[in-house]
């Protein structure tokens, strides 16, 4: 039991180490590690690509299978439309969750 408790904490510290090592990989060494300008121009596209890589699978897949006709895609399209029309920070959440809950719980989709 003693060892099991220790093992878990070692695992947690190792997980923590991977988060610092990756996030600090360029921030911590600073000026000593410089990226060539071409790389810096490439990386301007990283946020958009990363966000889409997290969002799109969630809206197009249902339980790991390709299925575009699902309530999540409908709700996501409504959220995108709301974002294009208003800068209100809460409205996209209200509209998206409303569509989601009406389709899931109201219509049983």
């Amino acid at each position: 039991m003693m060892w099991q408790g220790m093992w878990l904490w070692i695992a947690l510290v190792l997980i923590a180490a991977t988060t610092i090592v990756t996030r600090g990989s360029f921030i911590i060494p600073g000026e000593r590690v410089r990226l060539p300008p071409v790389m810096q121009r490439l990386l301007r596209y990283a946020p958009a690509a990363a966000l889409a890589a997290l969002v799109v699978p969630d809206t197009l897949l249902d339980a790991g299978e390709f299925d575009p006709l699902n309530p999540k895609l409908a709700a996501a399209l409504v959220v995108a439309a709301v974002c294009l029309r208003t800068r209100n920070p809460w409205l996209p959440f209200l509209a998206g969750m409303a569509v989601m809950l009406v389709l899931r719980k109201g219509l049983g989709w």
Partner: peptide, 20 residues
Amino acid sequence: ITLTALVLNLRFVIYSAALA
């Protein structure tokens, strides 16, 4: 466990390089 955590965190290398 460590390798899996490392791979799941790999995208932060991209962010780190961009933000440095």
